[in-house]
């Protein structure tokens, strides 16, 4: 244990020392020379912050008429440099009030509700219960039209007596894409693999087909993300006399592109 602790402390100290060396501007070659994306301040002034968040202090202010070069973007912040090479982070909201070389207002996309309606791809992570057992799940969806999308999802259900893995494909229909709280219906099928826990007796894994139908709701939150809640009913086709059924609910956070 002490050895472990020593190793960790060494690692920490090493990284602390390397901080100073890494802080130099040697990495500037990274920034492409061809980048001449420039905007002119059109409001009376624009604030530069030391980092890409509202919590970082304002370190500089550029006046109306000054030209800023756009360097890189992190979430809703843009790193810029002014004519004298001063660097700072400017919020996208402020940048949208600047002008580009043609004298027009700069057009930089800020993910909004409008984009939510016209999205093409969405992906998310969800958690919930499958027949009162915890389920973790992830999915990727592609919107073919405003109403219809195809989805692929994987789930892992971890119970006391077995572990279940599921792979499924589904068609999703959304009747009201323009609503902020948009309900949807889904129907699909896939494979389900049941691995009984081998602590008491060893039983073979079983792989079965399954079909499912469900309803759900997408709730747009902000930027490019939304909350997704869904309830699905599964029918597992087994070799036994009767098929098995299960109900699942999941809640998660998704991102659209």
């Amino acid at each position: 244990m002490i050895k472990l602790l020593q190793r960790s402390i060494c690692l920490l100290l090493f990284s602390m020392l390397s901080l100073e060396a890494a802080a130099d501007d040697w990495w500037k070659f990274w920034v492409a020379d061809s980048n001449t994306q420039q905007v002119r301040v059109a409001e009376p002034f624009i604030d530069f912050r030391s980092g890409p968040a509202q919590g970082f202090p304002v370190i500089h202010t550029s006046e109306k008429g000054e030209w800023l070069t756009l360097l890189k973007r992190k979430t809703d912040w843009m790193k810029v440099s002014d004519a004298k090479g001063r660097l700072g982070w400017v919020s996208i909201d402020d940048l949208l009030l600047t002008e580009d070389a043609t004298g027009d207002t700069v057009s930089i996309t800020e993910p909004r509700f409008d984009d939510f309606r016209t999205r093409r791809w969405e992906s998310g992570l969800q958690m919930g219960e499958f027949d009162s057992t915890a389920v973790n799940s992830g999915y990727l969806g592609y919107w073919m039209t405003a109403n219809l999308s195809a989805e692929l999802s994987v789930s892992q259900i971890l119970g006391n007596s077995s572990e279940i893995q599921m792979l499924s494909a589904a068609l999703v229909h959304q009747p009201f894409p323009q609503w902020r709280f948009s309900p949807f219906f889904r129907i699909g099928g896939g494979q389900i693999k049941i691995k009984p826990k081998a602590t008491l007796l060893s039983v073979d894994n079983s792989i079965n087909s399954m079909a499912h139908a469900g309803i759900g709701m997408r709730c747009y939150v902000s930027d490019r993300f939304f909350v997704r809640l869904e309830v699905n009913d599964y029918k597992v086709f087994t070799n036994e006399e009767s098929n098995e059924e299960a109900t699942e609910w999941k809640l998660g956070l998704s991102v659209f592109f």
């Binding site: 472990l4 602790l5 960790s8 690692l11 061809s34 980048n35 001449t36 994306q37 420039q38 905007v39 756009l70 360097l71 890189k72 973007r73 992190k74 979430t75 843009m78 580009d100 070389a101 043609t102 004298g103 027009d104 700069v106 057009s107 930089i108 996309t109």
Partner: peptide, 23 residues
């Protein structure tokens, strides 16, 4: 000629990939 800002030329850094070690 005056150029418009082309967003696709600006590098976005929203992903973070890392390794960790500890106890």
């Amino acid at each position: 000629r005056p150029q418009k800002v082309d967003e696709s030329l600006i590098d976005t850094e929203n992903f973070e990939l890392g390794v960790f070690g500890g106890v």
